[in-house]
Design a protein around this nucleic acid. Sequence first.
DNA 1: TTATAGCACGAACGCTTGTTCTGTGTCAAG
DNA 2: CTTGACACAGAACAAGCGTTCGTGCTATAA
Lengths: 219, 219
Amino acid sequence: MGLSERQRKMLEFITRSSGDKGRPPTIREIGAHVGISSTSVVNYNLNVLVREGLIARDKEVSRGLRVVHPGGKAFAMASNIVQIPLLGKIAAGQPIPVPDNAGSDSEMISLTRDIVQEQEGLFALQVKGDSMIDALINDGDVVVMKKQQSANNGEMVAVWLKDEKETTLKRIYREQKRVRLQPMNPSMKPIFQDPENVEIQGKVLLVIRQLQKPSALRV
Amino acid sequence: MGLSERQRKMLEFITRSSGDKGRPPTIREIGAHVGISSTSVVNYNLNVLVREGLIARDKEVSRGLRVVHPGGKAFAMASNIVQIPLLGKIAAGQPIPVPDNAGSDSEMISLTRDIVQEQEGLFALQVKGDSMIDALINDGDVVVMKKQQSANNGEMVAVWLKDEKETTLKRIYREQKRVRLQPMNPSMKPIFQDPENVEIQGKVLLVIRQLQKPSALRV
DNA sequence: TTATAGCACGAACGCTTGTTCTGTGTCAAG
DNA sequence: CTTGACACAGAACAAGCGTTCGTGCTATAA
């Protein structure tokens, strides 16, 4: 019953390999990963895993391994993906594109549910320009938002300032007769606005910054 | 553009094989199934499918095929998830925790492959404190990095400054006799270092900021 | 016509990979 | 002490497998 440390490592590697790379590992790949120089030892331990009913093997077939209980992980993950439409660019001088609920053929980004808990009314925008740098958001960053017209104190929201004709991302605090918009960067000072002038567009849930290939955000 | 009858059969077979049997087929298996006797013909048509963006191939690896858009959503996603170990916190005054390759029971975050293209040697760290704010990275942000000791000019890297005993995230530029470390925030000035003093820990691929539940990053 | 590109075939090369065989060391039961 | 199950290492073999090369066919453009 007791799996050795080696065997547990092997099983974990096989599971991960099958999931990530889309194909089971070879005997030698397993050996290299868990630190076994001899293929026969890997083979031996694989047979142990078979006897324990954890994996199945196809004889004389390369990568002839299958995890019997992909059980929780792989499958659970499949249903744990949220697709979010990437509606377009957002810049300081423009209103936020409306998340048209018929949103269909726009680009989508996929995130797992451990990153975004909510699911309804989500949309994403790519920030254009440096205008949101005081919110620690850079040119090219992607912000994931939830559409809503109100917000709790302290939440990060996208607001449209009517007079200024400007979109900005700030933490919002309602005070006596005014609204305080606090930049995320603690070294910067808040601005104060008449409640009539601020129009909440949505709550910011997530900021994603890709540094490698700034334009490779497509699915 | 137009896929030939053969190519459509091949793609369908690859998809089904990856799903049913849990592993992609070999070139000869494909050939046998669609009635091609020559492996080079299969190889040729596989490259067509690659050019069409329908599959991906790993060179010189048996069964090195992956269906990029395997029709059925659930499956596509299941094999399109990358798990990245969240190794711990990172602060300015501490070295980066070493991604021990035996990394097993640490916390994991899941990302889809359209967010992170690479998958080898990845690890994630949660930033503690405001020390990286000049890199537009806030307290609580998660950075996804790829372990490596070198970097190209302009890449965002985590470096350990030996004398200062300090970790910092900057864009790196090698100049004549010195290394320029450029903060991401364009309004901040670069610092210059002796090459001997900088030790590259890894390349930053991704920054994720969760604004809703800063502590709810678990899987 | 020639030239070019797309598609296909067969064969050969060489690395990959599963399998098997021999041998070593440990440990508990007899 | 001997025996045998168990875990492991190393080497060698044979089949599996991706790659490449030379060749031929067809259709379209020059």
